[in-house]
Design a binder for these strands. Structure first.
Length: 295
DNA sequence: CACTTGACCTGTCCGC
DNA sequence: TGCGGACAGGTCAAGT
């Protein structure tokens, strides 16, 4: 579930904690979670200092002084949690219980730093991965090259959104929003929330959308992503930030996982359907399907 | 080529 | 209580 706001929240947390730390050891309880290129990986990891923590779409980039970078994709259940060696949590601190239990059976990679701090990559379903790549090659790997624009960059306007969507004219708008080559960073939660905000039915074909629709959608995407970052992201099942804390966005969500509840705009009951083989939440009154557009 | 579906995994929940 | 199966959903490979 980590989508752009969750990954950005983790990035903000890690960029407070990691820069300047020197990697002392890396353990991989699940070797498949760590994909290293050819050559002696250890020499580019051990003794390397963390320079910065960046994000592209849903991917985290940890740049090291060895001219290599750690590239991390959390997929659905990945977590990156930092455990300080000398941090004292007050009673009832939300992260105390989780952090205290690390490592656990979902721990896939452990980074140990020379000052005793540790960074845990936990991933229940093992879909996520960590790669070590030369920093200059990171933008050249296929995954990165195919990514669409960053929706929170200042040059992402409605005309850009329209141009990107034109790559997928015959699919439904929900599938297009989930396509990372169209726009980077949107997943199931923010696709549903953005479409509700723009009053667009998820099954509308992309080519049926008017300019006004696309302007509304652009506005909704940016607003929803910014609001979620402000709330620390969404915790649906197991997302936590770098401090082990959950996000609160879902308390403010309008439709996601609110089937059976009332639309805050028109009081109609929110429904859940399947679109692009994903659970999809919408208000059937605010988000109407114009005619018989397939499916 | 454009688009959709299944596989990758594990934990949880639901019905029998 | 236990068990089978559906479901969760990001991305790539395979299928239509």
């Amino acid at each position: 579930m980590p989508e752009l706001p969750e990954v950005e929240t983790i990035r903000i947390g890690l960029s407070r904690l990691l820069p300047g730390l020197v990697i002392k050891a890396v353990d991989c309880p699940n070797p498949k979670s760590f994909v290293a290129g050819a050559g002696d990986v250890r020499s580019f990891l051990l003794g390397a200092k963390v320079l910065s923590v960046k994000r592209r779409g849903k991917v985290l980039l940890i740049e090291l002084s060895s001219h290599y970078s750690l590239v991390i994709h959390l997929k659905m259940t990945g977590q990156l949690v930092f455990k300080g060696s000398s941090v004292h949590f007050g009673a009832g601190h939300p992260s105390k219980s989780l952090i205290g239990k690390l490592p656990d059976k979902s721990t896939r990679v452990i980074f140990s730093f020379s000052d005793g701090n540790k960074l845990y990559f936990n991933d229940q379903r093992k879909f996520g991965w960590v790669r070590l790549l030369p920093t200059t090659e990171v933008p050249n790997i296929k995954f990165m090259q195919k990514l669409g624009p960053e929706p929170l960059e200042s040059d992402f306007n409605w005309q850009v959104l329209k141009a990107r969507l034109s790559r997928r004219p015959n699919t439904n708008i929900k599938a297009a929003l989930l396509d990372q080559t169209v726009i980077a960073g949107i997943g199931n939660i923010y696709a549903d929330e953005s479409l509700w905000g723009a009053k667009i039915h998820p099954q509308r074909l992309v080519r049926s959308l008017s300019d006004a629709n696309i302007k509304n959608l652009h506005f909704a995407i940016v607003a929803v992503l910014l609001m979620s970052i402000e709330k620390g992201g969404s915790t649906d099942r197991n997302y936590v930030d770098a401090d082990g804390k959950k996000g609160s966005y879902l308390r403010f969500a309008k439709v996601f996982r609110r089937d059976g509840q009332r639309c805050p705009r028109c009081n109609t009951e929110i429904i859940k359907i399947r679109v692009a083989s994903r659970g999809t939440h919408l208000c059937p009154h605010c988000q109407k399907l114009p005619k018989v557009t397939g499916k």
